[in-house]
C-alpha cells in the first residue's frame, strides 16, 4: 500500500488502485488525478498538455473507460481502478496497441503517444474492429500536434489485426 499525505490544507483519506497497486491518499479532495499520478506517485507517463480536458495527453483508464485525468478530482476516486500507460504492458510484453504504434512508427516527439495508446486501448476493448470513422470519432479528443494522425490511424487498424491473432502469433 502506498500512502501519502499532502501539505496543502484540509484533507480526507481516499483509497483506490493504480496499476493494481493499492493507494491511500490524504490530500485535498479537489486535487486532480493527473497531478497525483505525476507528482505524488511519480507515474510521469501520463502527460499534461492543457489541463482543461482538450488534448487527451492525460488519458488513463478509469474503471476501464478512457478518462482525462486532469478532469478527475481525487475525491471522486474512492474504490476506483486506475490504469495508466505504465500499467498496460504485462511481464514486459507490449500490448497489441503498443506493438502496432512501434511497428507503424506512429509518433514524432512522442508526447501525445501515451494518451493515444490508452485511448486506443479503450476503443478496441469496446469495439474490436472499428471502422475508420469510428476511430476518428473516438480519438478526436486526443491532439497530436506533430500531426501524426494518419500514422496513428494506421496503428490502430494494425492493433485491431494483431489483437485478432492468437496470442502466440502476435510476435
Amino acid at each position: 500500500m502506498t500512502s501519502f499525505v499532502g501539505e496543502d490544507g484540509p484533507t480526507s483519506s481516499i483509497r483506490f488502485t493504480v496499476n493494481d497497486r493499492p493507494i491511500s491518499v490524504a490530500i485535498r479532495p479537489d486535487r486532480n488525478l493527473l497531478e497525483v499520478l505525476r507528482v505524488e506517485l511519480g507515474l510521469t507517463g501520463t502527460k499534461y498538455g492543457c489541463g482543461e480536458g482538450e488534448c487527451g495527453s492525460c488519458t488513463v483508464l478509469l474503471n476501464g473507460r478512457a478518462t482525462r485525468s486532469c478532469q478527475v478530482a481525487v475525491g471522486d476516486l474512492a474504490g476506483a481502478t486506475v490504469v495508466t500507460v505504465e500499467g498496460l504492458a504485462r511481464d514486459g510484453r507490449l500490448t497489441p496497441v503498443q506493438q502496432a504504434f512501434v511497428e507503424v512508427g506512429a509518433f514524432q516527439c512522442g508526447f501525445c503517444t501515451p494518451g493515444m495508446v490508452v485511448a486506443a486501448t479503450a476503443l478496441l476493448r469496446r469495439s474490436p474492429h472499428p471502422a475508420d470513422a469510428e476511430i476518428r470519432a473516438a480519438m478526436d479528443g486526443n491532439v497530436c500536434r506533430c500531426g501524426g494522425y494518419g500514422r496513428i490511424l494506421r496503428a490502430i487498424r494494425r492493433a485491431a489485426e494483431i489483437s485478432a491473432l492468437p496470442p502466440e502469433a502476435r510476435g
Binding site: 505525476r38 507528482v39 511519480g42 507515474l43 510521469t44 507517463g45 501520463t46 502527460k47 499534461y48 495508466t84 500507460v85 505504465e86 498496460l88 504492458a89 507490449l94 496497441v97 503498443q98 504504434f101 512501434v102 511497428e103 512508427g105 509518433f107 512522442g110 508526447f111 503517444t113 501515451p114 495508446v117
Partner: peptide, 27 residues
C-alpha cells in the same frame, strides 16, 4: 529502420524534461 527507442515511448517510460524527478525536488 525502426527507432530502437520506440518501446520507451509507447510504455510511457521516455523521460521528457517535465518528467524528471530529482531527489528533494520542488516545484
Amino acid at each position: 529502420i525502426a527507432d530502437p527507442r520506440a518501446e520507451e515511448v509507447v510504455t510511457g517510460r521516455r523521460t521528457y524534461t517535465s518528467d524528471l524527478r530529482l531527489p528533494g525536488m520542488r516545484y
